[in-house]
Structures are given as structure tokens and as C-alpha cells.
Design a binder for these strands. Structure first.
Lengths: 212, 212
DNA sequence: CACAAGCGTTATGTATACAAAAAGTGGATT
DNA sequence: AATCCACTTTTTGTATACATAACGCTTGTG
């Protein structure tokens, strides 16, 4: 693994997990010493982070980007647009059997949610598989790329909300509905199910938001 | 101006203007010598280009990304989604007078198109002002950013099509319709006008596409 | 003759030294 | 006392030397 990759992954994780708070200045020497690498690969890592929008290069040095409540609204506005379209396209172009299988798995998800840590991990992995299946089905590299760059910020926001069992169970049902609509080949239904899910998800985040 | 900025601008221009064709390998020493800088700022420029999707870092060295006809379809699929939403949001949130003024200017655009080079430049600047006004009106940094990253690829595709006077005149009318819908505060109409414009634009590109 | 393995060449990845610019600090002047 | 200017210090930007890995070529063997 390259040093720049390592630095990128470490910094990205620190930002997403809120160990590096918004407004923190990432001085090059300081960070390169902390991560045990030289400034050159660190700078490349900072470039990538800035390109993703996790940091900004304005003024002196790079600074960890702020995410406020207003940003969350903007984030979900774009997310609804992109993922709604993605779900619709998946319904048009996807393989029904793939999503039918995912739907059945998602219906059994509540069993995983009740369980301990490892089972919970399985649940997140399952949701990830649904996202991946949608990405694969739409066969539009640009749309996939746009969603991917969004997800980075979303993971960051998610950390602000408490994912209780009740919300996860409801989310699983919503995901199952999306999978079902895609399997049925119904674009408008798939888009509607996605819109519904995202609105509920946003409401949950805002309701359980803990100010930093 | 920093050397890395200079290198970025130069390479970006070379790619967009098709002086560096898809598949071209951008060797670090070769390019740094050509641009008269050292490898360090060049690498940063290549990083930025790769983040934008103009180049890919796969295998050995960075390679100029290919844009095929299939890519154009994908590109416009995403563009329709994003710009449609943007137009709708602008209709909801924008200042009517701003877009009313733009609409009136666009109606006079055919006079510019008939003229010589400088007048044509004024036309492109006018369309740019409409885009900028929409960006400002939607007040959604994430959506603006997503559209901005798309526009880079679009400029590249545009260069494949011959922008004759007839098409530009029609495009001006389509833009005027978008501005009118936004000024009227009608989101659905604004989205529809955008969809229409983009479809016609795509048809024109594909019809006049000159294989490289 | 084909294929694989080892070596050499050439590319990228990393570290460090140097240059330049910007920000903070101290002192002097009004 | 406040402000402005110059200086110091710190931080980023650039160049270059070195390390490492990948690609291709040659050579030997099946």
C-alpha cells in the first residue's frame, strides 16, 4: 500500500469519524509526522480529500470542511435527485431476480438488527449490497460517480445520528420496498419508494441530531 | 500563479481541446519538461485532472480518459437529472426579475449569433450568465458542485459538434424558454423546458458528430 | 517454436533540501 | 493608545535526488 493511500485513508477516516472536527487546520508537517510519512504523499492525500470536498484549500492550509444542518438539507436534496433517478433506472435496466433475492434478504433483516455487533455488521453489508446492485444495474458511470462522491458526506452525517434498532428495522422495510419496486420493473414506484426512504432517513437524522 | 495551477490549466485545456487525445499516456518527466516545471507540481495537476475524471490513474501512469458515444448518452442522462432539478429549484427560489432580464437578453441573442467572432463570444457569455444565475438561485453547494464537475466533460463533448448558426439560434430560444419558466416561478415548466433543451442539444451533438 | 523466468531499463513513489510567500510579532511613530 | 511598517517565523510551494516497483526484453529451457 502506498504511503499516500495510507495517509488518505487515515485522514478520511479521522474526518468521517469526527476525530478531526470541522475547522481543524491540517498543517502539512504536523500531519506528516503524525502519520509517519513525508510531506509529499501527505499533500497528495490532502489533494484528494479536497477534491472530495472533505477539506477546503482556501487561505492558509487545508481545513476540514464544516457540515451544518443547512448542509444536511442540501445534501439530501441532491441525494434524492440522484438516488431517485438511480432507482428508476435500475427498475428499467436491472435484473429482476437479483433484486428479488435482495428483497427477500431484507425482509429477514430485522433478525440481524436485534442481534449483537457481528449481526449488525451483516445488516450494513446487506444494505451495501443493495447499493452496489443498483450501481451495477444503472450502467451509468457518471451517475455512479456522482452518488459515490455524495456517500462520503452522508457517512459523515450519519455519525451524528443514533441508529437505534427501531429506525434500522423501519429502514430495512423501506429498502425492501425499493428492491421490490426495482424487481417489479416499475421505475416510478422505485423512485417513490426511494423518496420516501430518504425523507424518513432525513427526518430521523434531524430528530436525533446531537450538536457538536 | 502557482506552477501546479499553470500545469493544470494547460493540461486541462489540451484535453478539452482534443490536442491530447483519449488514450494518451501523460508521462511525468515528459509533461513536466514540456511545461517547463518539475515533477512535483505536475503530479498535483494530474491528481486534480484524475479527480475530475479527465484522466485515469490505472496501471502505469495517467491516461487521458476516453469519451465514446455511449458515454455521451450517460453524460446527458445525468445532466438531465441535475439540470432539470436545478431549473426547478431556481424557479422556486430564484429572483424573478433576474431571470426576466436574462430572458429578454436571450431573445435578442440571434443578432449576436449572426455576427462575427466577438459577437459570438458575447452570446456564449450570456448563456454562461444564465447558468451562473441558476447556480446562485438554487443555493445548494452540493448540487452546484455536481453540475460543475459535469460541465467539464460537456465542454469536451461540445467540441465534437459543429455549432452552426441555426442550432445556436434554436438553443437561444430554448434557453429563453427556461429563463421564462424560472421567472414565472413554475418549477415543473422549468424542468420540462430544460429537458427539451437538453434532448435537442444531445440530438444535435449526435447528428453532427465527427468521428476522431 | 513457444513460454517462462530472470534481469535490466524506465517509470512512478517518496524523502528532503531549498525558495517563496504569508501570517504573526514587535517596535517605532503619529 | 492606536496604527502602520518591517522583521522574524512559520508554512506552503518547488525542485531534485533516491527508492521502489512495474514493464519489457532477452535468454534459456521444454
Amino acid at each position: 500500500m502506498r504511503a499516500s493511500d495510507k495517509a488518505y485513508a487515515a485522514l478520511r477516516d479521522d474526518i468521517i469519524e469526527w476525530r478531526l472536527l470541522p475547522g481543524t487546520v491540517l498543517a502539512e508537517v504536523e500531519q506528516s509526522e503524525r502519520l509517519g510519512i513525508s510531506r509529499t504523499p501527505l499533500r497528495e492525500a490532502l489533494s484528494r480529500l479536497t477534491a472530495e470536498g472533505l477539506t477546503t484549500a482556501g487561505g492558509r492550509g487545508v481545513v476540514v470542511t464544516d457540515i451544518s444542518l443547512d448542509d444536511i438539507d442540501e445534501l439530501f436534496e441532491l441525494r434524492e435527485t440522484l438516488e431517485g433517478k438511480a432507482a428508476a433506472l435500475a427498475a428499467e435496466r436491472g435484473d429482476p431476480e437479483t433484486f428479488e433475492r435482495l428483497r427477500r434478504e431484507l425482509l429477514h433483516a430485522p433478525e440481524l438488527i436485534g442481534g449483537q455487533e457481528p449481526a449488525l455488521h451483516d445488516y450494513y453489508e446487506l444494505v451495501g449490497r443493495l447499493d452496489a446492485a443498483i450501481d451495477a444495474a444503472i450502467s451509468n458511470a457518471y451517475l455512479v460517480q456522482a452518488m459515490r462522491s455524495l456517500r462520503v458526506h452522508l457517512v459523515r452525517v450519519r455519525r451524528l445520528a443514533a441508529d437505534d434498532a427501531a429506525r434500522l428495522t423501519a429502514a430495512a422495510a423501506e429498502h425492501a420496498a425499493i428492491a421490490e419496486a426495482i424487481a417489479a420493473g416499475n421505475p416510478r414506484l422505485a423512485e417513490a419508494a426511494t423518496t420516501l426512504h430518504l425523507h424518513r432517513s432525513l427526518s430521523h437524522v434531524k430528530a436525533t441530531h446531537t450538536p457538536h
